[in-house]
Computed example of a mutant assay.
Amino acid sequence: MTRPTTIEVSNSLDVHGQYPWRLGQIKIGDEYEFPTRVFWLLTTWSTTGTIPTSQWYVGRHISLNSFQDFGSMEWLVDDCWTQVYSHDTFGRGIYGSLDLLVESVLAGKRVRVKINSYITEADNLYVRNGQVSAQLLGQFSKTSAYNFLTNVNWIWQIASITGDVETVRYDIGSTLNRLSSNDKESITWFVASRPWSKVLTTSSSGIVTYGSKANLNTSLQLLQYHRGRQYCHSKLRSCSTVYQVYQR
């Protein structure tokens, strides 16, 4: 089971999903273990039935292997996503409510953005002075919708409701920046509609300002999903940092 971090629809209406957050493993007896030299296992899943894979050693820009597999697939869709806002390349709203997007981010909702033909989930979200920006980290370079380059790079972006999109490309396992760019893009913002329940708020010194740590511990013991969030209160000129944990 794989949850693609980035989805793209090609001109032929085929769907291709990238997934970078997987490491290779080997089977020893009845158990699976990491190899002595751990490597990234980058894959693209396509409705064409192809599964291109590129393997790169962790911490070094050295390719281990690259191949193309084929397989039958089942594609499952979560209908919890709702389009809440979209804007043009200059950040002028053309659909929905910016206030609703800000409210959703501050309520701990998951967010996805659509830029051109691809959709990706935000890894980190920020609200500063009423402006929303998102870090998009789960992408890697390609020659087409699903084929790998010989030299694969991470693609990291910061997308903002102003229409600004900053992109950097770093070689996998290296500090070499292959490309940096600043572009203006039309962006559509989607929000997960599932409710999150706030169970705990703490100050920077760990003092409880809402809820209780006991409730959080109980939720974790029940194996309920949780995540941390850092945000800047939009009514303050300076950036206030608050960590909140939400229970679903």
Rank of each mutant, 00 (worst) to 15 (best):
Q244R: 08
Q244C: 02
G49R: 00
G130D: 06
Q131I: 13
S86R: 14
Y246K: 06
T167E: 03
T143H: 01
Y170N: 01
A214L: 13
V113N: 01
L101F: 00
V168A: 02
D69H: 13
R110Q: 12
D14H: 14
S133M: 07
V168R: 03
L222G: 04
D88M: 08
T167I: 04
A134N: 07
V199D: 01
T167H: 02
S219P: 03
V152P: 10
A107I: 00
G108W: 00
I28L: 10
S204E: 15
I172A: 05
T47R: 01
A159H: 05
E8W: 03
P52N: 01
R112K: 11
S72N: 12
V127C: 03
V132H: 02
G138Q: 00
T188Y: 13
V102C: 09
S133A: 14
V132P: 00
V15A: 06
T44E: 03
G211I: 06
T43G: 04
D78E: 12
Q230P: 03
V199S: 03
V245Q: 13
T202R: 09
L64G: 01
G108M: 10
T2N: 14
Y146F: 11
S63I: 09
L236F: 14
S193Y: 07
T167D: 01
P195Y: 03
L223K: 10
L23C: 09
Q68P: 04
L98Y: 07
R37K: 10
Q83K: 15
Q224M: 12
D183P: 02
R60F: 08
L200E: 01
V165M: 04
V38L: 14
N217S: 12
R229D: 06
G17L: 11
I115N: 01
M73A: 11
I115V: 15
V199I: 15
L236P: 00
S160T: 05
R128P: 04
G138T: 07
W40S: 06
K235H: 11
L106V: 12
F39Q: 02
T162A: 09
S10D: 15
L106K: 10
G24V: 06
T43F: 01
Q157G: 02
V152L: 09
Q139R: 08
K27I: 07
K184I: 04
R178G: 10
N65V: 04
V113T: 07
N217E: 09
V191T: 03
Q221Y: 13
P4S: 09
L149H: 07
A122Q: 05
C232Y: 00
S144I: 09
P20A: 03
E166I: 12
C80R: 13
W40K: 12
S86Y: 00
W45G: 04
L13R: 09
S144Y: 11
S12P: 05
W196T: 01
Q157D: 04
T53N: 13
D99T: 15
L98K: 14
L223H: 11
E74P: 05
L41D: 09
T50M: 14
M73K: 11
Y246Q: 06
L98C: 06
S117K: 13
Y210V: 08
K109V: 02
Y19R: 12
V152A: 07
Y95P: 01
